[in-house]
Amino acid sequence: MPAPEVFVNHFDAVSAYGLGADRLIAGLYAGHSALAPTPFKNPLTGELLWGGMVPELSPRKDKEFRAFKMLELLRNRGNPVPAGTPVFLSTTIGAIEAIEQEFSGEGCRCQTPHLQELIALITRLFAASRVILLSGACAGSGCAVAYAAMLISQGKIESAAVIGVDAISEFVASGFSSLNALSPEICRPFDVCGRGLNLGEAAAITVLSGRPQTGTLGKVLGWAGNADAWHATAPSPDGKPLSEAIRAALGKAALEPEDIACIAAHGTGTAYNDSMESAAFRQTFHSPPPAFSIKGGCGHTLAAAGLLQLGVALEAFRLKRTPPNLNLLEALAGASGFVNAGAMACRPGKAVLSVNSGFSGMNVALLLGQS
């Protein structure tokens, strides 16, 4: 008996572009960046940080947790989760603002640990049968999609919802600042003049199932991941581990590198990530297909990044055209030829590739196709 296929039956998001996946996709394809100076400061320089904040939320700091608010905004757009469906949650920081409040002496409204409260909120909002937390750093939601797809293909579950959520906070800003990873200006993924990343925030959801439904967006054809353990925060500079993950995903989907129409890259804007990804793509493909990063539009949304990419990648495959690489002036030498400032025509192919990388050497590759 053949293994069940894995269909993508729903995708939605709340991001710096506002409420809805349609606004995210329309903004990116229009060449509009939602990045702007935020109220958060770089603790090392005192400069205001550029970032992508959800416009429907107050930019000021208060005692309401932004991650919780984004999930409520997402749920207000409807509950796509079938009854009795497990939710796979990916978040890097949860409601870290609770800990910030405790250390600042403001007091915390949490009566339970903040992750426990976050899980309880998702259970209530989406009527989840259970919530499974997967921690994969900035590759988290890609890993969650891969894990859920694996369980569906093995017949262990019929459907799954995957949620990724992370908010901008002082804790996150301080952490990335200590790594000298934050750009003092708008970020420029894959650019020779890129000076680092801009933080973003988002909540996103996708529903996977072994059965298609009306409006099915596509399929998850293959998936693979690894952890190279090269460094606590930096990827292996040669790109080999990410290339190995891509090749493993291709093998699972019974596809060849030339079957890939385009690539939704992690593309953070940091020298470490962008040069590593460029090297990985050149190792995997004789001539890499068009690649794009969405982070010049919405910022680095941490654990939500993989889900945002999934939705945009499926749209790129449908349109046969990538969104532009926003803010790009001159591509890195290693990315020249497959990364351009403007929108690019996808190659004829059977799938699109979406990749993410995270701290501790996490790498994940997803192959997405039409239903």
Rank of each mutant, 00 (worst) to 15 (best):
L329W: 07
V312Q: 06
I93F: 14
V165R: 06
P43E: 12
T322C: 02
Q154M: 14
L221K: 10
A333E: 13
Q283V: 01
S129V: 03
T216Y: 04
H32N: 11
G136M: 09
S33Q: 11
A253H: 14
K350Q: 15
P189I: 00
V339Q: 12
P348H: 08
A249E: 03
K63M: 13
R321T: 11
A98T: 06
G342I: 00
M70A: 02
S177I: 08
A26Y: 03
R347G: 01
G269K: 04
A291R: 06
L217T: 00
T216W: 07
G334V: 03
R109H: 11
A30W: 15
A67S: 15
A335V: 00
K69S: 14
G361T: 04
E201Y: 12
G27V: 02
G164A: 01
A264Y: 11
A139R: 01
S104D: 14
M70R: 09
L242W: 15
K69M: 11
G175F: 15
L134I: 13
T112A: 14
C346K: 06
L118E: 02
F285Q: 00
L89T: 01
V192H: 03
A271E: 13
G107V: 00
A291F: 12
A249K: 03
C193A: 14
V165Y: 06
P257Y: 12
G194A: 13
V54P: 03
S135D: 02
L367C: 07
V165H: 04
G369P: 08
G361P: 05
G299Q: 07
L197Y: 12
E106D: 09
I186Y: 08
G20R: 08
S360H: 09
P184G: 05
G358D: 03
G20P: 09
D62H: 12
L208P: 08
Q101I: 00
G299E: 07
A67P: 06
E72A: 09
A139L: 08
A167P: 10
K219Q: 12
T284H: 11
L182P: 07
Q213N: 05
C262M: 13
S371M: 03
A67M: 02
D166T: 03
G210S: 13
G296T: 04
T268N: 04
A351N: 05
S58V: 02
E201K: 06
R318I: 00
Q283N: 07
L49F: 14
R347S: 03
P290D: 02
